[in-house]
Design a binder for these strands. Structure first.
Lengths: 144, 144
DNA sequence: CCCAGCTGTAACCATTACTGTTACAGTCAG
DNA sequence: CTGACTGTAACAGTAATGGTTACAGCTGGG
């Protein structure tokens, strides 16, 4: 499925913002986040930009600029993050329309749409059950 | 996520095999399946090849060759198909290992692995609840 | 009011996956 | 033996991703 790491990068950045805030550091620059994720700052700015558009983080420009969470980490779920960074549906339909003269070709798309919708709902329910605060908690728990 | 249509193609092919069998046609060639999906027969042979490796379909070679379901469509779930055609996990980790000197970089991977596993389990449960027979039923229901 | 320091974004590259296509060797029922 | 079909390699076009450089735009603090 050519899985991407955007959700991982975004959650990592948010958890790092949450921890920094708890430690008294109001904002982090894209360079500072990139130093934890170990990637290029532009990749971080792109990812945090999507989260900003979704209202999950705030950004200050100019001197003393940087990023911070727009609301407490308990109130940001992985579903919020998923919706912010993921555009495509889980499963794609046929690239070209199937043969409508075949009974299967005619009815398969709406039938699959129903099933796929159910799967996406299940995935969303699961993602909604975990917050950035939960992730941070488990992260620190695992590395004493 | 660069979603692909392999699951869709595979389910379409299986539903078509199930219907053809019900109509008295023992096997279908890749050309016949391709005519319903409207794609190249090689694409079908590739897809059905994966299903064959997973034991979901049987194939006969030589003259009078073709494909058929290895077991009744009620006993083939979309989870079976998903596992046969999808290799990558739903969400990828960082491409490069994060900074282990950062507490978040150190613990984020196992923390996310736990969450991602839960999501995949939810997705699998959902897929396991639908069989090829169900899909065929809904397909024909929607196109009288 | 200016400037250092940072964001936002365009542009480009290498890599990879997917779909579609041609070609051809291997297989086997009749 | 042969025709019909499978299995698979090889290749092309398209697209997404992650990484990188470059640079215009913004703004708090001096």
């Amino acid at each position: 499925m050519a899985a991407n790491s955007r959700l991982t990068i975004a959650v990592h950045a948010l958890a790092w913002l949450a921890l920094a805030h708890r430690r008294g550091q109001a904002v982090l620059t894209s360079d500072e986040v990139a130093a934890s994720v170990l990637t290029n700052p532009v990749v971080i700015r792109r990812g945090l930009g999507e989260l900003h558009r979704a209202g999950l983080v705030e950004v200050r420009r100019g001197a003393g600029a940087g990023w911070r969470l727009a609301r407490p980490p308990e109130q940001i779920t992985l579903l919020d993050v998923y919706e912010a960074v993921e555009r495509d549906p889980l499963f794609a339909m046929h690239h070209t329309e199937p043969n409508l003269e075949c009974p299967v070709g005619r009815g398969i798309r709406p039938a699959l749409t129903g099933v796929y919708d159910g799967v996406e709902q299940a995935l969303r329910r699961e993602l909604a059950g975990t917050s950035i605060a939960d992730v941070l908690h488990r992260t620190l728990e695992l590395t004493p």
